[in-house]
Computed example of a mutant assay.
Amino acid sequence: MPAFLTLVGVKQAKKGAKFVHIGPTELCKVCEFYKVCIGNLEPKRIYEIVEVRSIEHPCKIHEDGVCVVEVDYPNIQAALETKQAIAGVTITYLPIKCDFYDCPHIDICRPSGLFEGDKCIVEEVSEKIDECKAGKVLRVVTLKIAQQ
């Protein structure tokens, strides 16, 4: 998927930096740059800066202004049931259903920035999760969110 443009604070505009979009403030909603800055980002989604451009704009939220950046969805490690864990396939992501919130694998079974129904490409299949408290046969995979 090709990267897309947005604006981030000048101090945060570093290639490779990741951020979670938390949503607009009231000041954002009346800003002339709203559509390019906030309008194309999804709340609670993780983004990675892949390129920083030299264009800057003033901002009422960021003291030093904002910078134009290209962002993309980063690869996310997650757990999948073994039957879905096939490198190269596109899946519809479903988080692992489990009631064991004290499980050491909870962060990989329900990773941040990935939502039920996301179309994802399984980039890589890694180790098996040996001690699933719910008794599931799981693998650690690297997922790339396909174009939304």
Score class of each variant (00 low, 15 high):
L138Y: 01
K136A: 14
F100Q: 11
A78L: 10
V50N: 09
A85P: 01
A146Q: 14
D99M: 15
V68D: 02
A17E: 15
V8C: 09
I129V: 07
Y47F: 03
I49M: 01
E32N: 07
D72F: 03
I96V: 11
L94Y: 02
H21M: 15
D130C: 04
P104Q: 15
K44T: 06
I86A: 05
A87D: 12
F115A: 13
L7W: 07
V68R: 02
G65A: 04
V137G: 01
F33N: 11
V89R: 10
P43E: 12
F115N: 06
S54Y: 03
A87T: 09
V140I: 13
Y47E: 07
K136C: 03
P2E: 08
D102Y: 06
K97V: 14
Y93F: 13
Q147C: 05
V10W: 04
E81I: 13
E56P: 00
S126A: 14
V66D: 00
K15C: 12
R110L: 06
S54A: 02
A78I: 03
I129H: 05
Q147A: 07
T92H: 04
C98S: 12
C103H: 06
F100N: 15
P2I: 01
E26I: 12
A13W: 09
C31Q: 07
P24H: 03
M1P: 04
V141A: 09
L27W: 00
I86K: 13
P43A: 14
D72W: 04
S112F: 12
D72S: 06
V140W: 06
D99F: 14
S54R: 06
D64T: 09
I61A: 00
I108H: 03
P111N: 01
P74K: 06
E124Y: 00
N75Q: 09
T142M: 13
C67H: 02
G65C: 05
R110E: 03
K119A: 13
I61W: 01
H57P: 02
F19L: 15
P43R: 13
